[in-house]
Simulated scan of single mutants.
Amino acid sequence: MAEASWYVVHTYSGYENKVKVDIEKSVENRKLQDQILEVSVPTQPVTELRNNVEKTIERKMFPGYVLIRMIMNDETWYVVRNTRGVTGFVGPGSKPVPLSEEEMQKLGFGGGEQMAVREVVLEFAPGDTVTVVSGPWKDAVGKVAAINEKKRTVTLPIDMFGRETPVEFEFTQVKKL
């Protein structure tokens, strides 16, 4: 029996989860559980800061793509390829190319477990003008000089005693103008 490999399937944008569900239904209906082993839409937690409110959401790592661990043969190829929303396998021409173990580990799928990569999405960037919304510097306005995601702070030059001094603020203390 051939060994299962990971393949990448291209889908219409926004149809990734629908394609995953449809493939899983086809696998169940055709009793292919021993040939199509896993269907995955890789996501990662992303912390967004909008209007000074932190919200953690799951964001697709590869929009428009679904990963499938399967044994490639005519039947499994047909089931996947003819699923509504699938535009084709990734590979040269019509020949699907499996991902190597090294490629899967780079994607965070080493040993079948996905890595949790935390990313922070802010509504401001270095150079943007922001206003301080709380604390002793409330209503101060400045251009973002630096952002420290680990400490979750932003540095603004604030006018103190006639000269600019860099002051650190928490992400929630500033708002983009």
Rank of each mutant, 00 (worst) to 15 (best):
V141L: 01
R118L: 08
K143Y: 11
K20G: 09
Y78C: 11
G127F: 00
V19K: 02
Y15M: 11
W137A: 03
Y15K: 14
M61D: 00
A125P: 03
R84W: 11
S100A: 11
P98H: 03
E113R: 01
E119A: 13
R69W: 01
F124K: 02
T83F: 08
V21F: 12
V41L: 08
F109Q: 02
S94V: 14
L122M: 07
Y15D: 09
S40T: 09
N29S: 14
K106A: 09
G111D: 09
P126G: 02
Y65N: 03
E48H: 11
S134T: 11
V66E: 01
E28G: 07
V117L: 09
N17K: 14
I23Q: 06
V120F: 13
G142Q: 02
E103P: 12
V97N: 08
L122R: 14
K95F: 06
P136L: 10
Q105A: 06
V133R: 09
S26M: 05
V19M: 02
R59W: 00
T47D: 00
H10W: 13
S134V: 06
K18D: 15
R30K: 14
V144H: 00
N17M: 12
L67D: 05
G110K: 13
E54Q: 13
E119K: 15
A145F: 10
G142D: 07
P63E: 09
G88S: 13
V21Q: 12
E38Q: 13
P42L: 00
L107R: 12
M104K: 00
Y65R: 01
K143S: 15
D139G: 10
A116G: 10
E123V: 15
G93C: 11
F124N: 02
P96R: 09
I36P: 07
P126K: 02
K138N: 12
K60N: 06
G112M: 08
N82F: 10
E28F: 14
V121L: 02
V132N: 04
E102H: 12
V27Y: 12
A140T: 12
V66I: 05
D34A: 13
V97H: 09
I36E: 10
L37Y: 01
V117T: 13
K143G: 11
T76V: 10
P96G: 02
E101S: 08
D128K: 01
G127W: 05
V141M: 08
G127L: 08
K143R: 14
P126L: 07
A116W: 03
L32Y: 12
L32H: 05
E58I: 02
T11N: 08
D139V: 11
V41Y: 00
L122G: 04
G127H: 04
S13P: 15
M115P: 08
